[in-house]
């Protein structure tokens, strides 16, 4: 009897170990995948922030060169300054996205204003700044697309079985997309032929 009991206990322990082993076999790779996903999201978000920062740094130069030709257009300079401050204060992905939209709108307006000043458009320094700005907008679009793709993949993992169980167990949550406000051009279109 005693021997039998011992045998049963052993079997039970083995079964438990086997179950744990099987669960672990399924859980660990998925868990690692989620961790990896989070890392990728962080990395691609850093890229977005890089480009936002780049734009942020570029703006004072741009504003100064426009001021040289159009000092009286004060409204737009105030709007840009405000958008820039908001961006500086933004903490979350959503806040950053909102501030970014604000900044995009202000820059788009600035570009419309610039149209009125042919001398400014012909300025070599200004042309370079505009190329830099356009390049930054493009990089931002690329970084945002990369970020959203990574988030999409991660969210799929978090929401589908069995990832959802593991995500719940370890507290992984869906990540926010970097969204563009509807109605606002995704970025100011910087476009000028060499003839103007």
């Amino acid at each position: 009897m005693i021997k039998n009991n011992k045998g049963n206990a052993l079997v039970t322990v083995l079964v438990i170990i086997a179950v744990i082993g099987i669960v672990a076999m399924f859980t660990i790779p998925k868990y690692n995948k989620l961790i990896e996903g989070e890392e990728q999201i962080d990395a691609s978000w850093a890229q977005v922030e890089n480009q936002l920062q780049r734009r942020f740094d570029l703006i004072p130069n741009l504003v100064n060169s426009v001021k040289g030709y159009a000092a009286h257009e004060e409204g737009i300079f105030t709007q840009i300054a405000k958008a820039r401050t908001d961006y500086g204060n933004a903490g979350t992905v959503e806040q950053t996205a909102t501030a970014n939209n604000e900044l995009s709108a202000a820059l788009a307006r600035l570009l419309v204003i610039v149209e009125k000043y042919p001398d400014l458009k012909a300025d070599v320094q200004f042309t370079r700044l505009m190329d830099e700005l356009a390049g930054t907008e493009n990089r931002l679009a690329v970084a945002r697309k990369d970020y959203n793709e990574t988030v999409q993949q991660f969210n799929n993992n978090v929401r589908t079985f069995p990832g959802n169980l593991i995500a719940k167990m370890f507290g992984f949550e869906k990540k926010a997309y970097f969204e563009i406000k509807e109605g606002v051009e995704e970025s100011p279109t910087v476009d000028f032929g060499s003839n103007d």
Binding site: V124, T127, R128, L129, M130, D131, E132, A134, G135, T136, S194
Partner: peptide, 19 residues
């Protein structure tokens, strides 16, 4: 080759011909 430089290089070296 920052964008500003590339833009002006296109202006200088390519545009006169491409036009």
């Amino acid at each position: 080759y920052p964008d500003g430089l590339l833009g002006s290089m296109v202006d200088t070296y390519m545009m006169p011909y491409l036009e």
